[in-house]
Design a protein around this nucleic acid. Structure first.
Length: 595
RNA sequence: GGACCGGUAGCUCAGCUGGAUAGAGCAGCUGCCUUCUAAGCAGCAGGUCAUUGGUUCGAAUCCAAUCCGGUUCACCA
């Protein structure tokens, strides 16, 4: 049990005994004591003084006395300032914690809880390459999956690929008209970029044709409808839906190029999936649900034959679930897919990592599933994240301001290489070791940058100033890890390891602060899992690394003043390295042994 | 217009189940490499927590109104 929980427990018990109350540990507010006061943890007493009709000072004194006398192993002292009861925990308590936990490989992670959870993330379009926004999605999805694993869940990662529809036909037509049979191989272009270029080509040509028609006196609407390239694209969509062989063949060929490109990027950034769904296979799902929904009265039909659900009672609007021509809409297939996934995986929770522009969509999706009384309904959770914007505003592909994922990764790795060469600390590395190190640092900087902020908030990326390698960054934490590993290597011969040692000397302030932070780790992981928020881990591990660096500067580790201190500090160092590694691992970031 | 999200230092962000003097990083300015990795450490400076009112022992945090920015409310996906 964590120290904070322990304090809540003994405090609630003491109040109940002294004043005949019925408090539970959750009623007690415990904070870390502010550095300017003496103590480790603070119980805030204001909440009780009205009920108990006594002054906060008196309550604090009585409570402190009782708790101190009953738990001499846990506390060594207390003080009361205004309504704050500050406790100092005993070194004995912290030493016992270190003996118990410092050398556990899986410290911080929970035992399997038998529950399954699905995480759907990435969800790309096959007509454009991945950009910075996708990176945030991928890193978040991957990280939340790892965090949930660490919290004891069995996690299945899924991906739904948007591989059909009018937008796909646009790149197909453009390729037919303009490519002269060119392929990614013949042009030495990555497959997803190759296809993406034809999507751009479509838009260029379309725009020209529209302008020509406008000049000829057509209205904007007419022009957009009658542009030859658009008409050809509409026809191709019909042919695709009819399963026309040459269209299907082209579609498959171009998709295979895109998938090869995606696969390369996914490998690079460390995304993987247990199951990939394709919309071309799932877009017809959910049709039977419309029928049963009509039968049960959850849906209703309008005179023109279209089918709707009335959500006005829930403060929303009416929502279409089947067009008058009988075809289904986006939300219908999402409902169908939710049901299918539930059948396949029987997860208690289904997390969708999707941008916040779809907040309304997922609200509606969950509500409809609940009204249909589907078993998956209550487990639906939309992990909504904000846009990544540029200082000038939103990224726009038409204005060429989209930050390409592959380019950015390459740039980050390149910066990592430059900085590493400047510092010249790993000149003895082989070529392969160097390449790996650059990847670790470059990707680490990028991932940490995108994961350190609250997912639901939009964030700004400034391409002019490249992502930092100092301060609140991935490389700072990786550096701290490498530094610790260096010390441990140097002390390997004389390190007594994890054998039992009786500590007798008082913990110095920075030794204690480090210990306190290490002790918080399991509850941080738990909170990150509950709130679906990797930034909690990022902030924690940054503070841990900072504390270690202060500790490192203040105290000698390998050449400590005596054997006991040396053993203690080596143990704290090993422990810190371990917690840094685990924290970064759930963020999807590797840590180097040297850098 | 309705709904939802946001507004904290020059910039990027923490803090938001109400608690002590609002915290980091970057940028700026001072120091610190003849001892364990200076991708580091110590320090200085920088604030009307959008505005106004309310709730109370106490408000960046809760409530209301207002202002600003964003998203969304498609027989698109």
């Amino acid at each position: 049990m964590s120290a904070v929980l322990k304090i809540k427990e003994v405090t609630s018990l003491a109040i109940n005994q002294l004043y005949d109350c019925q408090l539970v540990p959750g009623d007690i507010l415990v904070n870390a004591t502010k550095p300017e006061f003496e103590g480790d943890y603070t119980v805030v007493l204001f909440a009780f003084i009205k009920q108990l009709k006594m002054s906060p000072e008196q309550l604090g004194q009585e409570l402190g006395q009782k708790i101190l006398s009953e738990h001499p192993n846990l506390f060594t002292g207390f003080n009361v300032i205004k309504g704050f009861l500050n406790f100092t925990l005993s070194d004995r308590y912290w030493y016992a914690f270190l003996q118990d936990s410092a050398d556990k490989t899986h410290y911080g992670t929970a035992e399997p809880n038998g529950q399954k959870v699905m995480v759907e993330y990435s969800s790309p379009n096959t007509n454009k390459p991945l950009h910075l926004g996708h990176l945030r999605n991928n890193f978040l999805g991957r990280s939340i999956a790892e965090i949930l694993k660490a919290d004891g869940y069995e996690v299945t990662k899924t991906c739904i690929v948007n591989d059909r529809g009018i937008h796909i036909c646009k790149s197909m037509i453009a390729w037919q008209w303009f490519a002269n049979g060119a392929t990614p191989e013949s042009t030495h272009t990555k497959g997803d970029h190759f296809v993406g270029d034809y999507y751009v080509k479509f838009n260029d040509v379309f725009k020209q044709q529209v302008e020509t028609l406008l000049a000829a006196g057509k209205s904007k609407e007419e022009a957009e409808k009658e542009a030859p390239i658009m008409k050809a694209t509409q026809q191709m969509l019909l042919d695709w839906e009819a399963g026309k062989p040459e269209v299907m063949e082209l579609w498959k060929k171009m998709n295979s190029w895109v998938y090869a490109g995606f696969e390369e990027t996914y490998q690079r950034i460390g995304s993987d999936f247990d199951k990939t769904y394709y919309e071309s296979n799932t877009y017809l799902l959910g049709k039977d649900l419309v029928e049963s929904g009509l039968a049960s009265g959850v849906f209703f039909q309008k005179p023109d034959g279209s089918v709707w659900i009335d959500l006005t009672g829930d403060g929303l609007d009416e929502k279409l679930v089947r067009r008058k021509d009988g075809t289904s809409v986006y939300i219908t297939q999402d409902i169908g897919l939710a049901v299918q996934k539930q059948k396949e995986f029987k997860a208690s929770q289904s997390i969708y990592v999707v941008g916040d522009e779809q907040n309304y969509h997922f609200k509606v999706l969950k509500l409809i599933c609940q009204k249909l009384q589907l078993p998956a309904a209550d487990g639906i959770y939309h992990l909504s994240y904000g846009m990544v914007e540029l200082p000038t505003g939103k990224m726009k592909s038409r204005e060429g301001t989209v930050v390409d994922a592959d380019d950015l990764v390459a740039e980050m790795v390149n910066i990592a290489r430059q900085k590493t060469e400047e510092l010249g600390k790993v000149k003895d590395f082989t070529r392969e070791e160097l390449e790996e190190l650059y990847d670790i640092i470059g990707l680490g900087a990028l991932k940490f940058f995108l994961l350190r902020v609250d997912p639901k908030k939009k964030m700004v990326f400034n391409p002019e100033e490249s992502i930092d390698f100092h301060g609140f960054t991935g490389p700072f934490i990786q550096y701290t890890h490498a530094r610790i590993k260096s010390i441990l290597r140097k002390s390997a011969q004389t390190d007594p390891g994890d054998k039992e040692i009786v500590y007798t000397q008082p913990l110095l302030p920075l030794e204690k602060e480090l210990t306190l932070q290490l002790e918080m780790f399991p509850s941080v992981l738990q909170e990150a899992a509950q709130e679906h928020d990797p930034s909690k881990v990022a902030i924690y591990v940054f503070n841990l690394a900072k504390t270690f660096n202060s500790f490192y500067t203040e105290h000698s580790i390998g050449n400590a003043e005596n054997g006991e201190k040396k053993e203690l500090r080596l143990r704290l160092s090993r422990f810190t390295a371990q917690v840094i590694k685990t924290s970064m691992q759930v963020l999807g970031i590797r840590v180097p042994e040297r850098m």
